[in-house]
Amino acid sequence: MEWVDFFLQQLITGLSNGMIIALIAIGYTMVYGIIELINFAHGDLFMLGAFLALTVLGAFGLGDWSGASAWAAVVIMLIASAGFCGALNWGVDRLAYKPLRNASKLSLLVSAIGASFILVNLGLFWGGLPMDVFAGGVAAAAPKDFPALVPNTNLLGDDSLVQFTPKDVLVWAVTVPLMIGLTWIVTRTRLGKAMRATAQNPVAARLMGIDTDRVIGATFLIGGALGGFASVIYSLYNNTISFQMGYRAGMDAFTAAVLGGIGSMPGAVTGALVIGLVRSMSDAYLETRWTNTIVFGILVLILIFRPSGLLGSRAKEKV
């Protein structure tokens, strides 16, 4: 049954892409949940994570990556990018958002847009590094090849029409444990409790002795780190990165967060999987050039019938 194979293929692609989007979307939804900010810089943070990963790889030299050394490199990149993005997100919050805690939400949003522009520009400069991985840095703005550390062989055998590759395995092996770990942090630890309390009512949380600034900082740290993980698996999955990729990725992830109900982590994952699937199905069965239109059309329709997203709870305003 050829069409079954074809459909399964789209399912796999869609879900894998969806899981990558989900990691980024969680970063949006966590920050939104706690300070009600659409963190515009988050997508660009993700982009810088990919540039860092490539730089780390370049520092080891562009050898012939295979077998164990490739997997070791993947682990190193994951740790480096996660740490970098976490720290960077924390820093952006300190410098650009924290001074505006009491300002209007729109000022905060403009500050985030400003931060986003700065990060994009840093990405452009980064691409100009005179390293082999950046093709000598001559054409700074050009997309960069990301070495195929993870092979594209079909795990289901060469005869199978359905492609299931180590890349897909990588995506799931990274994202699922991260999501389980995050759920554990949020539901079981003191920090998680403090995060939920701060999200619900920052003033009351502060009165109860919670250091809300630290909690917000931790939220940015965790959200950023997830973006860093996502940037590495995205780069290994797609093998090309560009300083402009933060916009597209951020847009998808933010759409996912809203679709699922912004502020809700299961919602962000659900929304991301829906978007991943809609994208791959639309690419395969309709036309690629209409995919964006279809994604946003579905978003609008869902929001008309469920104004708080798929899993969002409609908060009743206190009157």
Partner: peptide, 17 residues
């Protein structure tokens, strides 16, 4: 020209601050 976004972004952050 390559500094455009950086300047733009800094200006935005400074104005709202």
């Amino acid at each position: 020209n390559n500094w455009k976004y950086l300047i733009f972004g800094l200006a935005l952050i400074l104005v709202v601050r």
